[in-house]
Amino acid sequence: MPRIGDIALVCKSKNAGPFELTIDAVFGDRETFEKVKATGVLGPELFAKLYKVKAEDVLFTVYDAGFAFKATLPRLIPAGDIGDTDVYGAQQHAPLLAVEIPM
């Protein structure tokens, strides 16, 4: 089974303001994007599990115009606060790379 890291064009994370993290997976063509979408694997529950938050705290958007999926969720610790590990939130995407897509 291919993993997102094998089939996505872009997989990235970044702050959406200091209190939220936003994670994107972008696919290179409509065909792959539609196949991934049809599996239903990418959704709020997946991100809730990967990032140990509640599904209702995940703002999930399927972005057809960009062949992309976006999930925005609370940061573990606000950017720059005591114990934060990633001020820009730029290196929190790796768990998504390993997710298998049944296609």
Binding site: K14, A16, E20, T22, D24, L59, A65, G66
Partner: peptide, 16 residues
């Protein structure tokens, strides 16, 4: 079209 559409993902909670 893709580079522009995907820029809406950047640092936003929602792309739309």
């Amino acid at each position: 079209p893709m580079s522009v559409a995907n820029h809406s993902l950047h640092e936003n909670a929602s792309p739309v």
